[in-house]
């Protein structure tokens, strides 16, 4: 539990700025939902999925909640972690106390996942208030979205460990996260993609997240849930192990 005081440190800083940062966290995904959900939804009407025909608004809501979990975790684990690790040298100070590098990395990973689930919860509340979501099964989406946060914060920490500056993260977003958003069925069903793209896209972590979360929005149970859950846990564990290894290597170099 040596990671806990480091987590609390981040919590304490965030508490000072929680409300303005929350506004930013919710506003963007809600704009997507309103612009696309109501605007496009009126044109599209219903979409055909493996769960049958569903309203586009709900289709988009279930996909974009996974995207929000991904983005919130990624932003925190890249920009904010990098500034604590490299710019402010906060980690160097912590390492002078009886806390190991692996404790800090674990704390940062959980912290990014926490921030992610926090904004996800806020968006879910607003969706509920707007009457977009009804299914009681969405309660189960919550722990799954926490796992999505853990997976993407671990993935982002790999790139944090390799970064020389903030510019590097632009590549991660534009070359990895944005294409993944389009390939994972956030905005349109994956069935629209060519078969060979579908086959590759199936293994993307965001596809796995959506496969678990989306049916719950329609009051259905996900099919092959153990497979999706298992893959997501596997991605999270592998990504975390690689991130930890690379971070330790980074700190063993002369600087």
């Amino acid at each position: 539990m040596r990671w806990w005081p480091v987590f609390l440190r981040n919590f304490r800083v965030w508490k000072k700025l929680a409300i303005p940062s929350l506004v930013g966290n919710i506003a963007e995904p809600l704009m997507w939902l309103i612009a696309f959900g109501y605007g496009m939804g009126a044109l599209v009407g219903e979409v055909k999925t493996s769960e049958g025909r569903v309203p586009y608004l709900l289709f988009l809501a279930s996909g974009s909640i996974c995207m929000s979990a991904m983005n919130a975790a990624s932003f925190e684990a890249l920009y904010s972690v990098f500034s604590r690790m490299h710019v402010q040298k906060t980690w160097d100070g912590i390492l002078n106390a009886p806390i190991r590098l692996q404790d800090i990395v674990l704390a940062e990973m959980f912290w990014a996942a926490f921030k992610s689930i926090f904004s996800v919860s806020a968006i879910l509340c607003v969706m509920g208030l707007l009457g977009v979501i009804h299914s009681p099964k969405i309660i189960l989406a919550w722990p799954l979205l926490l796992l999505v946060g853990v997976t993407f914060s671990s993935l982002a920490l790999i790139f944090n460990a390799l970064a020389n500056g903030y510019d590097f993260f632009t590549y991660y977003f534009t070359l990895f996260l944005t294409p993944m958003t389009f390939l994972s069925g956030v905005f349109f069903p994956q069935e629209q993609l060519p078969i060979w793209v579908q086959k590759i896209a199936y293994f993307l972590p965001l596809s796995q997240s959506i496969a678990l979360v989306r049916p719950l929005f329609f009051d259905e149970w996900p099919t092959d849930w153990a497979l999706h859950l298992g893959l997501l846990v596997l991605y999270a564990c592998c990504a975390y192990a690689i991130a930890l290894h690379l971070t330790q290597r980074r700190f063993m170099r002369a600087n």
């Binding site: 005081p5 000072k16 040298k89 906060t90 106390a97």
Partner: peptide
Amino acid sequence: TLDPDFTCVENLEVFGAYF
């Protein structure tokens, strides 16, 4: 390596918590 977001007291409190 002081925490720029914390006051002097908070800096000491947070660091003490690491111990």
